[in-house]
Computed example of a mutant assay.
Amino acid sequence: MRQLVLGGVRSGKSRYAESLAKITGLPVIYIATARAGDDEMQARIQQHQAYRPADWVTLEVFDADLPKQLAKLMQQPKVILLDCLTLWLTQLLCEAPLSEALLEKVDGVLDELVEIVAAGGQAELIMVGNETGLGIMPIDALSRAFGDRAGLLHQRLAEVCEKVVLTVAGLPLVVKG
């Protein structure tokens, strides 16, 4: 099964996704996409790490290699918990100055990710992303590029996933499945 768990900051999305992974009884591979750019982010990462069971394998993937790594992992009978799609997208968009060439590269990587998720595999896949499209239109080009790509990525993944959940105030709201 492929699941997409969306929500705002501190909505409970990661905790909910982790609970889904735990109840399967299968080995879990946790794909962490966050980089610690400052002390506050390092504290957030440490909080997530402390909550995870010790027997989960953690892979840190911050770059355009994510689709290729996910494709390999999908062929194994395990649970893959990918947290977080939007942090990963942010890092892709910030690896170089904003340009049409960068946006084309990012769009190609997003296409590749959607294709791999659509193809499925033996693994149970749980993906986590921040639902960022509920606010105002951002004023700068980079923020608009991020919002557009995050929204379209979530739509495309929701289309190929069997289950989609929106978390609000720690409560899971099933949107699909």
Rank of each mutant, 00 (worst) to 15 (best):
106 V>C: 12
17 A>C: 00
127 M>T: 03
54 A>Q: 09
168 V>T: 05
169 A>V: 02
11 S>G: 14
169 A>R: 01
106 V>A: 12
5 V>C: 07
97 P>G: 08
26 L>I: 10
109 V>F: 08
116 I>M: 14
137 M>D: 10
58 T>W: 03
86 T>N: 09
100 E>D: 13
48 H>N: 10
141 A>F: 01
70 L>P: 09
174 V>M: 08
113 L>M: 14
135 G>Q: 00
63 D>P: 12
112 E>A: 15
69 Q>G: 14
121 G>P: 04
31 I>S: 06
130 N>A: 08
114 V>P: 06
135 G>V: 02
28 V>C: 08
108 G>H: 11
61 V>G: 05
79 V>Q: 11
161 C>P: 01
140 D>H: 13
138 P>C: 05
143 S>P: 00
99 S>K: 01
90 T>W: 10
132 T>F: 07
114 V>D: 07
111 D>C: 04
114 V>C: 11
46 Q>W: 05
92 L>C: 10
120 G>N: 00
72 K>Q: 14
123 A>M: 03
77 P>G: 07
10 R>P: 12
157 L>E: 05
157 L>A: 04
30 Y>Q: 13
68 K>S: 15
116 I>P: 12
46 Q>S: 14
171 L>Y: 10
163 K>I: 06
122 Q>G: 12
89 L>V: 03
167 T>F: 07
43 A>W: 09
1 M>F: 08
148 D>Y: 09
2 R>S: 15
106 V>K: 13
15 R>V: 14
96 A>C: 02
114 V>Y: 07
133 G>C: 03
91 Q>Y: 12
172 P>I: 06
81 L>V: 01
121 G>V: 02
146 F>Q: 05
118 A>E: 15
54 A>N: 04
43 A>D: 13
46 Q>K: 15
28 V>K: 00
113 L>Q: 12
118 A>L: 07
54 A>Y: 00
85 L>P: 05
58 T>C: 04
8 G>S: 07
176 K>T: 00
113 L>G: 12
129 G>L: 01
136 I>K: 04
123 A>P: 03
94 C>Q: 11
159 E>G: 04
139 I>P: 11
152 L>M: 11
109 V>D: 07
167 T>W: 07
78 K>P: 08
9 V>D: 09
99 S>L: 00
103 L>A: 00
